[in-house]
Amino acid sequence: MDSLVVLVLCLSCLLLLSLWRQSSGRGKLPPGPTPLPVIGNILQIGIKDISKSLTNLSKVYGPVFTLYFGLKPIVVLHGYEAVKEALIDLGEEFSGRGIFPLAERANRGFGIVFSNGKKWKEIRRFSLMTLRNFGMGKRSIEDRVQEEARCLVEELRKTKASPCDPTFILGCAPCNVICSIIFHKRFDYKDQQFLNLMEKLNENIKILSSPWIQICNNFSPIIDYFPGTHNKLLKNVAFMKSYILEKVKEHQESMDMNNPQDFIDCFLMKMEKEKHNQPSEFTIESLENTAVDLFGAGTETTSTTLRYALLLLLKHPEVTAKVQEEIERVIGRNRSPCMQDRSHMPYTDAVVHEVQRYIDLLPTSLPHAVTCDIKFRNYLIPKGTTILISLTSVLHDNKEFPNPEMFDPHHFLDEGGNFKKSKYFMPFSAGKRICVGEALAGMELFLFLTSILQNFNLKSLVDPKNLDTTPVVNGFASVPPFYQLCFIPV
């Protein structure tokens, strides 16, 4: 009986604490739906499609509103004006990374994606500088992407125009580009180590996009005490870190300090320079996690976009025909596509942009946080508050993009057929937390897609009208449904 009384008292205290925290903070924060004790607004949000729920709530509470995930307040920004004001106009104040408990377990605050403060700034600055020195957006990395595009075309030829699921092959190409940047090595598509790495990356994007992960991140005790797919994700990350550590040891034994070959060499050189400046942010643990982040951000996002792009091109054969006509006119058949071609191919450029806009790969991006107490639109948001960005509300804005739910390359073309930029184009987020590999991803999408369409016609196994382009999961990332196609050599 005594234990029951204690339990009831504990629960009562928890409920009172929950109510007090919510009521004391709500006077400062933007308005929002009334949260339930302990669980907050979790029942009012469709976990399978958070973005749709945010759109519905914005119609009631406006472009800036507050939700509670458990006891934790989260300020939501919906629509271009609110997102721009926060991420661009007040970029420094909104540059923090929001709480992501599962990532905390995986990387302990290291790396480039989930770190904060001085650690994040130094690692991000170093990573950007190193990638630029190796030619991100310049010639040397373009050579690597072109080489991988040629290998991709050869792998597709091996399908002999038979029906195939493109998931694996389209994942190999961007993964190999990242391998060449980090390890100075590309792998054969049949290499077992490479296959294991690909498998872990593919599993992780599916797990991260599941409703279960949303629950884990908002009720963090689940991570330590409950079984579930989150444990598989943590094991996959541990596998990748151990693999990278092996490569780091190989580099330490063979590195030429006067001739760095890749990202690992550059990081080890930085560690050597910083060894007298303790404590340094440049450690082996930081290198492991930064490399894992580059793999995660640079492989599955690009391969998922490529997979979605081919599905949309199957669905819209008239678009595919126009792209192939432009390829034939500008590039021809006797040389590989290059980035200089893009400025002469406005329709193809528009298609690449429209694919990214339409699929809305990361509907709410990753959570941000404010780095200080900030007054925002007459609300006071306390330091450390998590900020949720609705990228969907920007990419699918119906004023900027008429009929935003329709796939239409003319969203990025003017009346004369010239490519038209849009400030609403934010597939990689915006501001200080914009994806480090934005330029690389854009290069890969253009070169891989043009190389495929230069060499193959795409054949659907069903009537294009019957192809479903609805994402199968739409949590962290929008993942396309399973499909097969035939690559018919031109």
Rank of each mutant, 00 (worst) to 15 (best):
R97L: 05
T130M: 07
D2N: 07
L362K: 10
N41V: 00
A477N: 14
S422R: 06
V370I: 08
S18G: 14
F446G: 00
L391E: 11
G442P: 06
I374T: 13
A103H: 14
E155C: 05
K420P: 01
K322N: 12
N277Q: 14
L43C: 13
V370Y: 12
E354P: 00
E250K: 08
P101A: 10
S286T: 10
L395A: 08
L128P: 03
N289W: 11
K322G: 10
N202W: 09
F476L: 13
I178T: 02
N107D: 08
S140L: 06
Y68C: 06
D408L: 04
R124F: 03
R307Q: 05
L102Y: 15
Q192F: 10
P37N: 04
F183R: 01
F448M: 05
C164D: 01
Y379W: 08
A86P: 00
I284V: 13
Q193K: 13
E326D: 05
G171A: 10
K241G: 07
I331Q: 03
M406C: 15
A106H: 05
N107P: 11
M257I: 10
E142M: 05
S343F: 10
R139A: 12
F401G: 04
R357Q: 00
I112V: 13
P427T: 07
S140D: 09
E81S: 08
T301G: 12
V319D: 04
E104G: 13
K432N: 15
F487A: 02
K119L: 10
F425T: 07
F194T: 02
P33Y: 00
I99E: 14
Y308T: 02
N116K: 15
T301M: 14
V153L: 05
T229A: 11
N474Q: 12
M345A: 02
N231R: 13
N202Y: 12
C175P: 02
G111Q: 05
Q146S: 11
H78E: 05
V319H: 12
G296L: 14
E199Q: 09
M129I: 13
R157C: 09
N277K: 14
F401L: 05
L314M: 11
L197S: 01
E93W: 11
K275Q: 15
S254T: 14
N217C: 12
V490P: 05
I327C: 05
I244C: 12
K247P: 00
F376V: 08
L268Q: 03
E274L: 08
N398L: 08
G79D: 04
F456V: 00
Y80Q: 06
N455K: 08
R329M: 15
K249P: 02
C372K: 13
R139C: 12
A103G: 14
E81T: 07
G332A: 01
G117I: 02
N107R: 13
I207F: 13
E400K: 02
L314D: 01
I47C: 15
L362D: 02
C435V: 03
L16M: 13
M198S: 04
L447H: 07
E272I: 15
N56C: 12
R186D: 01
R21W: 08
S390T: 02
A173F: 02
F219A: 04
D468F: 06
H276F: 13
E92G: 07
I123K: 05
G117R: 08
L128V: 12
D262G: 12
L453Y: 02
F456M: 02
V6D: 02
K375G: 06
T130V: 10
Y379R: 03
L388T: 03
G91V: 04
F239R: 08
R97A: 10
K72S: 07
M339F: 08
P363S: 08
K190S: 11
C372H: 15
E272A: 11
C372V: 11
I488F: 05
G171T: 14
L170K: 00
I182D: 00
S429V: 04
G416V: 14
I178R: 07
G332C: 02
V64R: 01
F187C: 07
R377D: 04
L87V: 07
I359C: 15
F194M: 14
V351N: 00
S53L: 07
C172G: 07
M257T: 06
N418V: 08
T34D: 07
M198L: 12
I42P: 04
I141H: 08
L310H: 03
M271R: 09
Y80K: 06
F487C: 02
F456R: 00
N176I: 01
L195M: 13
L170V: 07
H396Y: 15
I205Y: 15
M257N: 15
A106E: 08
I207W: 08
G171Y: 08
R335I: 03
G332V: 04
S365F: 14
M257W: 10
Y68K: 08
P409D: 00
P174N: 09
L102D: 06
I182M: 15
E93T: 09
A297V: 10
L440I: 05
Q324P: 01
Q146K: 14
I112D: 11
P489R: 02
K399E: 15
D89N: 14
Y424A: 08
V64I: 11
C435A: 04
G111F: 02
N259S: 13
L234F: 09
F401S: 04
F134H: 15
I39V: 12
P174G: 15
K235C: 06
